[in-house]
């Protein structure tokens, strides 16, 4: 089992990328589990064709404890197990602590032992802002981190912050940076900018997602491009990255 945490600036397309990678890995024949770690709880919505899984925090708010994985998970496209952490009442509580509680709940219910996924993908909100949002990086959780970025300044700034956090955690035996996925916004010299940034932080770029309207097209239909058209260019990009993650493709 390999566990990967996907980080990146808010709005950069982490959920789109994560869901598409989950779908692509499943097409390659792997058993996948995706855990949305964002209070918005919309990470997996395309994998379930719009059907909403009950977020763990919502369930605990109502019932105080959870004794069955069936209550907090849905099996989506191609057998992908979908879980959403959810969050506190807006403006109250602590979202970071919510992620810790979600992970503890999944652990106590032996989610990994029961579902036996080949890959677990954690889709994490934005930056590593506090202990809760660093939870997926801890020993025993993600083995590797992928940062999604575009060539835009603020996106690279966030990516740099995440890299700094990983460096700070070096002596803690936390997850290691696997590489960047460039989610293009079609800004000028984008590829050069991101390539230069990757060089500066000593990280490979493991994938390049070209700007394409087909992502929005399929998302409007509650699907990832892989579910909608597995042969389209975008789907091929995700399949290529998934092959690399699975160790069956070429390094970029």
């Amino acid at each position: 089992m390999k566990k990967i945490a996907i980080y990146g600036k808010g709005g950069i397309g982490k959920s789109t990328v994560t869901s598409s990678l989950s779908a692509a890995l499943s097409v390659l024949g792997y058993r996948v589990m995706q855990i949305g770690c964002d209070p918005k709880a919309d990470s997996t919505i395309n994998l379930t064709n719009g059907q909403r899984v009950t977020p763990v925090m919502n369930y605990l708010r109502e019932f105080h404890s959870c004794s069955s994985l069936d209550e907090i998970s849905l099996v989506g496209y191609n057998g992908i197990v979908c879980v959403e952490a959810g969050g506190p009442i807006p403006g109250l509580g602590c979202a970071g602590r919510g992620i810790i509680t979600t992970f503890n709940t999944l652990e106590s219910l032996q989610a990994y032992e029961i579902f036996k996924p080949d890959f677990v993908l954690y889709d994490v909100l934005g930056d590593v802002v506090c202990g809760g949002f660093a939870m997926p990086l801890r020993e025993g959780y993600a083995d590797e981190v992928i940062i999604v970025t575009s060539g835009e300044k603020m996106s690279l700034y966030a990516a740099n912050n995440i890299k700094k956090a990983l460096d700070n955690f070096e002596n803690r035996n936390y997850a290691k940076l696997k590489g960047l996925i460039m989610n293009c916004r079609n800004i000028e010299n984008e590829e050069e900018i991101v390539t230069q940034f990757a060089k500066e932080i000593d990280s490979p770029i493991i994938g390049n997602i070209p700007r394409s309207s087909s992502i929005q097209y399929w998302e409007e239909r509650n699907m990832t491009p892989i579910q909608g058209d597995v042969n389209c260019i975008i789907s091929c990009s995700f399949l290529e990255i998934a092959s690399q993650i699975a160790g069956t493709g070429k390094e970029n």
Partner: peptide, 16 residues
């Protein structure tokens, strides 16, 4: 508990 202190990581550092 509330701030999510990672005792395993602290143990790793102190042990090292």
């Amino acid at each position: 508990t509330v701030i999510g202190t990672d005792f395993k990581a602290l143990a790793h550092i102190i042990r090292t």
